[in-house]
């Protein structure tokens, strides 16, 4: 379990996170949602150790991040997989080299064993015959899949995704969402997804944390989001007419 207690983070005197607490469980797709500038990316980067919070505790299965030494930090990070918003694939490396990279750095395997693992994860994300291609030769959806493949190649305990379906068409976005959820169940990982895509939230948000102005304003699941009376989340989720109507239909049906 990932436990976050009372997290504070500021930049140049501006308080971005104001005492956020949350827990993320194994085998669940946990989502952090909120408007742009609500602090969700900063929150995710604090979890990843890319930002150091001023106050608060982040613990990974009982290991307090702040208490770990540099070597232990690096070891913990090897248990993490990350899918970045833009994919963050290495331009100069082919798809195969991109995915093989963490294995080359940390696994004591022969080239054939590594290649075998690369092909397994590529197959898992439904990509084949792309080994020799460079990231620039792939579509946005394919780049995201390669990014997911790279994130899971080391069998991570924790998977973090920053807006994994931004810039994708609705069909590809749903495919990516479902893929992340399937992988989370299959590998029994703790997955934390940062998103403001309401389709994703409704589709795979088993646990949702809503951040507003750096504060946790609501917590629940995609089922509970329909019934909630919390004005902040209602204003955010049901800002479009389509979602307002969907909510109305759901509430009418459940009466």
């Amino acid at each position: 379990m990932i436990e976050v207690k009372n997290l504070y983070k500021e930049f140049d005197g501006i308080q971005v996170l104001k005492g956020v607490s949350a827990t993320f469980e194994k085998g669940k797709t946990n989502m952090i949602i909120g408007q742009s500038g609500s602090g969700k990316t900063v929150f995710l980067k604090c979890l990843l150790g890319l930002h150091t919070p001023e106050k608060g505790i982040i613990s990974f299965d009982g290991r307090n991040y702040a208490d770990l030494k540099t070597k232990q930090h690096r070891q913990l990070r090897q248990e993490m997989g990350m899918v970045f918003q833009g994919g963050a694939l290495y331009d100069s490396l082919t798809v195969e080299e991109n995915i093989m990279f963490p294995l080359k750095m940390f696994a004591d395997k022969t080239f054939d064993e590594m290649l075998d693992r690369v092909n397994t994860v590529l197959k898992r994300v439904n990509l084949e015959n792309v080994n020799a291609k460079f990231p620039a030769e792939l579509s946005g959806g394919m780049q995201k899949r390669v990014s997911i493949a790279r994130a899971i190649v080391m069998n991570p305990k924790y998977l973090f995704c920053d807006e994994p379906n931004s810039g994708l068409d609705p069909i590809t976005a749903t495919v990516i969402d479902n893929l992340i959820q399937e992988i989370t169940k299959e590998y029994q990982m703790i997955t934390v997804i940062n998103s403001h895509d309401m389709n994703s939230v409704m589709e795979i948000g088993e646990k949702i944390i809503f951040l507003k102005d750096g504060v946790k304003a609501w917590e629940g699941s995609n089922k509970e989001i329909f019934k909630t009376e919390n004005q902040a989340i209602v204003d955010f989720v049901y800002s479009s007419n389509l979602f307002k109507k969907v909510r109305q239909v759901y509430l009418n049906e459940s009466k």
Partner: peptide
């Protein structure tokens, strides 16, 4: 610099690479 702004350096750090 391009690696920095496209989060490729963050990706290295997240993997536990100096």
């Amino acid at each position: 610099g391009t690696m920095r702004v496209t989060e490729q350096i963050d990706a290295l750090e997240v993997m536990g690479i100096n």
